[in-house]
Each structure stands twice: as C-alpha cells, then as structure tokens.
C-alpha cells in the first residue's frame, strides 16, 4: 500500500493510507516518536472517528511485531541531522536490468555515490546487503545519498536489459 506524507510543522508527520476495506486511515508520527493511528468519520471526513495512541516505545514494539524494523524511520532521523543527505525507497521493477542479478553488478555506489543500506523483501529486512546479494524484482532498496545521486540510482534501477550500459560518474 502506498502511504502519502504530509508535514505537520512543529508536530511531526502524517501518513495517509487506506485500510483493506478502502477506509482512509492515517498514522501521525510526532517528533518525539509517539504515534497515533486514526480513522476518519463518514459524515466529516476531516475529523477523527477512532484513534489508537501509542507511546514511542510501544510504536517501535508494534512495528517490530509487524516484521518491519523501522529502518527507514531511523534513517529519516539521521538524514534530518545531516543536511544534503537524503534517503529514498526504490523498488526493483520486474523489467529492471538488475532483477535477478547481484547487487554488486549494479556498481551503484561507484556510479551514483549512494549507499544501499537495507533491502526490504516481503516481511524481511536485510540490513547492509553485501555485493553478492541477489536482487529480485519487487525488492525495495533503502538508499541514502545526495538528491542527485538518488535520482541517478532510480534511473539506474529503471534500466531494462536492452538499454545501453550506463556511464555515470558519482555526483557530488
């Protein structure tokens, strides 16, 4: 499911998505890590109907129960403290040149200057994947790097086997 992100200045971030029956839901993550999960009223779709409030540690525990350590959330914290550094989740598309190939084959770091710090595959998170790690279609790569580098990496992953081999130098 795709979640969209809205900044709540001074408060945190709201993520909007849908439940299985198509009901809008939102997750508010406060700057201090407290989490609120809410649904909206039918008659007033801007106001909360039900809410579930989780303290920061409880939210982490729930996230781990659901099988996804909050790698990306922690990365967001990290990149917030280091300006110029960004994080992005990139999906290996089924037609990608690198689906089924080794991570090392992409030469992602040399070509784009980005580090792939984790791969999310279904419920598993593979932290710090080695160059001999085989990428599969549908894998989500969590990468950090400069904005331009991440652009280049997205482009690289989007190449099909028929595209010419890219010549890219690491952007600063």
């Amino acid at each position: 499911m795709e979640f969209t992100e809205t900044l709540l200045p001074g408060v945190g971030v709201r993520y909007d998505g849908q439940s299985r029956d198509g009901q809008p839901i939102a997750i508010v993550v406060a700057h201090d890590g407290d989490v609120e999960i809410v649904t909206y009223q039918r008659t007033d779709p801007d106001a909360v109907q039900y809410r579930l409030e989780l303290a920061a540690h409880a939210a982490l525990a729930v996230a781990e129960l659901l099988g996804s350590p909050r790698v990306s959330a922690r990365l967001v914290d990290l990149t917030r403290e280091i300006p110029g550094l960004h994080t992005r989740r990139l999906v290996v598309a089924p037609g990608s040149r690198y689906a089924g190939r080794l991570l090392g084959d992409s030469k992602a770091r040399t070509r784009t200057g980005c580090s792939i710090v984790a791969v999310v595959r279904g419920p598993d998170v593979i932290a710090a994947p080695a160059p001999d790690f085989t990428l599969l279609a549908g894998d989500t790569l969590i990468a950090i790097g400069s904005e331009r580098g991440l652009e280049a990496l997205a482009e690289l992953l989007g190449l099909t086997p028929d595209d010419p081999v890219p010549v890219m130098t690491a952007p600063v």
Binding site: T6, L7, L8, P9, V11, R14, A26, V28, A30, E36, V38, Y40, P45, D46, A47, V48, R51
Partner: peptide
C-alpha cells in the same frame, strides 16, 4: 485534533 485534515 492533530490527525485532522484541517490541521496542516
């Protein structure tokens, strides 16, 4: 009302 849609 933090999660409300008018809040942003």
């Amino acid at each position: 009302r933090t999660p409300n849609r008018e809040t942003p």
